[in-house]
């Protein structure tokens, strides 16, 4: 369906992942038939407006869903099926084989534990390390994320650190077990612009050392910089997916085109008129018939409002879910 990564190094293989929430108002399908696979050292970007299911895709992979959630499909991780895995075995994988970096480092750290305790905690969940060994590994983990004065930071509490330093701690915690897969949910959104670049460099380094990364963001610039492949989500579905270059150079789905058109560009001084896509993403409890994007789509016609388009492979290793992706595709 999409640009297949090299089969021998596949770390994650998500197939037809569907996550539903049972709510008093009805069933919300937050993730609807999402499929992708990821090889070691590869980075996949997931983009889309907020509420389109990016975070829930990550939480589904981590097995961190609330009790009203129902997951379907398959999540193959290092050859093991994660859906239906007993909680104890899932705990043994979390933090050591696969790790999650939260959006806001202000709230993701325990305010009452020193940096050293937080880092050592993760090791103690998984290995019975002695205090001294754990400390040595914690120090090493801080060095790997280029923390200034790592020995001193070990003794400090989260509130004594700047936002960027806290996110370094969070990434150090995620990387301390040397996971095969790192999931990052908007890891730079809560940070200053100047710090964002440093944190992204840090993720790129982790990827160079062979970690597979799924990076959720709504910043297409970040995707262009960091991601080998990109999946664009809308209303719980992947609407376009493929190698980042191909998708960004020739977006075929009107939603992707809209997202890219809204991007301010330095090389385009006439960009004053660039505007975001009009309207809002649909209420997941009241999806429009046919294509979920049709109420906002400039190309929508009769079939669009009746039949939901399937995600189909196109040339160039891309997959697009749009009735008009091939025909009148290149609107600009």
């Amino acid at each position: 369906m999409e640009a297949e990564p090299r089969q021998d190094r596949i770390v994650l293989n998500v197939s037809n992942l569907t996550t539903r929430f049972l709510t008093p108002r009805g069933t919300v399908t937050a993730v609807d038939g999402v499929s992708f696979s990821l090889a070691a050292g590869e980075t996949l970007g997931i983009v889309g407006e907020s509420g389109c299911g990016k975070s829930q895709t990550l939480f589904s992979i981590m097995g961190l869903l609330p009790s009203n959630a129902r997951v379907g499909g398959s999540i193959g991780f290092e050859g093991q099926e994660l859906i239906g895995l007993p909680p104890g075995e899932m705990n043994r994988l979390r933090g050591i084989r696969l790790a999650l970096v939260f959006q806001d480092p202000m709230t993701a750290l325990n305010p009452y534990l020193t940096v050293e305790r937080q880092l050592c905690e993760v090791l103690e969940y998984h290995k019975g390390l002695s205090r001294a060994d754990a400390r040595a590994e914690a120090l090493e983990a801080l060095r790997r994320v280029h923390m200034p004065e790592p020995e001193r930071q070990l003794r400090r509490y989260p509130h004594e650190l700047s936002g960027g330093m806290r996110q370094r701690v969070v990434i150090a915690m995620a990387m301390i077990g040397k996971p095969a897969l790192l999931l990052a949910d908007e890891p730079t959104t809560a940070l200053d612009v100047t710090i964002q670049a440093e944190i992204l460099d840090l993720l790129a380094e982790q990827s160079d050392s062979g970690t597979a990364i799924v990076l959720v963001t709504h910043d297409l610039g970040v995707v262009a910089r960091l991601c080998d492949r990109v999946a664009v989500m809308y209303a719980g579905r992947v609407v376009e997916q493929g190698p980042t270059r191909a998708v960004f150079h020739a977006p075929r789905h009107p939603y992707t085109q809209g997202l890219l058109a809204a991007l301010p560009r330095l090389d385009d001084l006439a960009s004053a008129g660039r505007k975001p896509i009009e309207g809002q993403p649909p209420d997941l409890l009241a999806l429009p018939p046919g294509c979920a994007f049709s109420p906002r789509c400039p190309l929508a016609d009769g079939p669009c409002r009746e039949m939901s388009p399937e995600l189909l492979s196109r040339d160039g290793g891309c997959a697009v879910a749009c009735h008009h992706a091939d025909g009148r595709g290149g609107v600009s």
């Binding site: 981590m62 961190l64 104890g88 705990n91 043994r92 994988l93 979390r94 933090g95 050591i96 790790a99 999650l100 939260f102 806001d104 709230t107 993701a108 750290l109 325990n110 305010p111 009452y112 534990l113 905690e121 993760v122 969940y125 998984h126 969070v170 915690m173 995620a174």
Partner: peptide
């Protein structure tokens, strides 16, 4: 509801561990 509890779970903490290490001390 605090996110660091969810984060601890994401790092592989068991329920027991979360209660003893992250809830009770707070």
């Amino acid at each position: 509801q605090r996110e660091f509890i969810e984060a601890a779970r994401a790092f592989g903490a068991t329920d027991r561990r979360i209660i003893l290490r992250h809830i009770i001390p707070n």
